[in-house]
Computed example of a mutant assay.
Amino acid sequence: MSSTEQAVARRLLDSAAQLSYDPLVEVDWDTPVDPDHFGMSPEWSTLYGTAYWAEMSPAQQRELTRHESASVASTGIWFEMILQQMLLRDIYRTPPAEADFQWALTEIADECRHSIMFARTCAKLGTPPYRPTRTVLELGRAFKTLAYGESAYASILVAEEVLDVMQRDWMRDERVAPFIRTVNNIHVVEESRHMKFARDEARERLQTASPSRRRASAFVVAAASYFIVTSMVSDQVYANVGLDARRAIREARANEHHKALMRSSCAGLMDFLGSVGLLTRPAIRIYQRANLI
């Protein structure tokens, strides 16, 4: 690894030493959830802005956002487990004295804490377990085994950036349950280091990539992004809060407000992917289907 990359890893290690959290201590896990609080900023609900949302009572709206928040947290656990395995595989032969080896283990430790934090969030919200579909789970199994280099790091970046934008809104919103705001704040602060590392790694790996490899990586990253983003809110949340699931799914998928929110929140991410050559025409079509561009 280059001296520049080693210097970045050392700075990230210093940052982690100065500003990291223990969610078991920092988060109020004991106070019961106030039913008057949302689980996320309501504007981020998949049904916000639809006719169905307008028909729901305020209590139903709040309950839906709590289930949606739990679904997002569950998806976060799923992808963090994939991320940890990819990082371990990537550093398997790296000399342990190097800063990037130690940073990778630090990031894995962060992700372990985040996954436990998200798991406890779901438990406190009292929701059923939400997982991606069986097909997506099996695709994830293949992805964690086969993805490497820029494909792995750029996919990590997409998952982290999309969640980061959402959580920055939720952590500042006093309508959101206080413990969820704390969870989001912890994740945003610590993931900022992870995103810096993922950007630098993706950029570095692509410097020597051939045109054919770049095109292949662009497709893999876009496909991974599609399945990550479309799995964030499970279709099961609607029935679990007493809604007509078919109607809710139909209106959520046609929700122009939510699509516009996703596109605007991903503008910076798409600029980065374009700057490193990962926005090929096939990739753009996939991002458009996922409402990321």
Rank of each mutant, 00 (worst) to 15 (best):
R120T: 04
A152T: 15
V183D: 04
A209C: 05
F143N: 04
D169E: 11
L125H: 07
V183R: 00
R120W: 09
T133V: 07
L125N: 07
A198L: 07
V220I: 14
R120C: 05
K124P: 01
F179N: 10
E204Q: 12
E160A: 13
R131F: 12
L157W: 04
L137T: 11
R203Q: 14
R168I: 03
T208H: 10
F197Q: 08
A177N: 02
A198H: 07
S225K: 04
Y153D: 03
G140K: 09
V189S: 00
A223P: 00
R203A: 13
V176K: 02
S212I: 06
G140N: 07
T208P: 02
A147H: 12
A142L: 15
P132N: 10
R193T: 01
R134F: 11
T135L: 09
R203L: 03
T145C: 10
T145A: 15
Y226K: 04
R193F: 07
R141S: 14
Q207C: 08
V136Y: 09
S151P: 03
E174K: 07
A224W: 02
R214P: 08
S217V: 13
V221T: 12
Y153G: 04
D200K: 08
A216D: 12
S225I: 13
F118H: 05
S212L: 03
A223Y: 10
V189I: 15
R193S: 03
V221R: 03
W170N: 10
K144D: 03
R168S: 03
Y226L: 06
A142P: 05
T208M: 09
R181L: 06
V221H: 02
R181F: 10
L163V: 13
I228A: 15
R134C: 09
G126H: 01
T135V: 11
Y130M: 01
N184S: 14
E160W: 14
D200T: 09
F227M: 11
V220Q: 12
P129S: 08
E190Q: 15
R172L: 11
P211K: 01
A198C: 11
E150N: 10
V158R: 07
P132S: 10
V158H: 01
S225C: 10
I180P: 05
S225V: 14
S192R: 05
E201G: 00
K196V: 08
A177E: 05
H187S: 03
R131A: 15
M195F: 04
A209P: 02
S192I: 00
A223T: 15
W170Y: 05
L206T: 08
V189T: 12
E201Y: 04
V220N: 08
A119Y: 11
T121A: 09
N184K: 07
E174T: 07
F197T: 06
L146H: 08
L206C: 10
F118I: 00
E201I: 12
C122H: 02
A159F: 06
E201M: 14
C122A: 06
L163S: 02
A202G: 03
A209D: 03
S155R: 11
P178N: 13
F219K: 08
E161K: 01
T208S: 13
E150G: 10
K144W: 08
S225E: 11
A222N: 02
I228M: 15
A159H: 04
F219E: 11
T135M: 13
N184Q: 14
I180E: 00
P132Q: 13
I180D: 00
V176A: 00
L206S: 13
Y153T: 04
C122I: 09
S151G: 12
A142E: 15
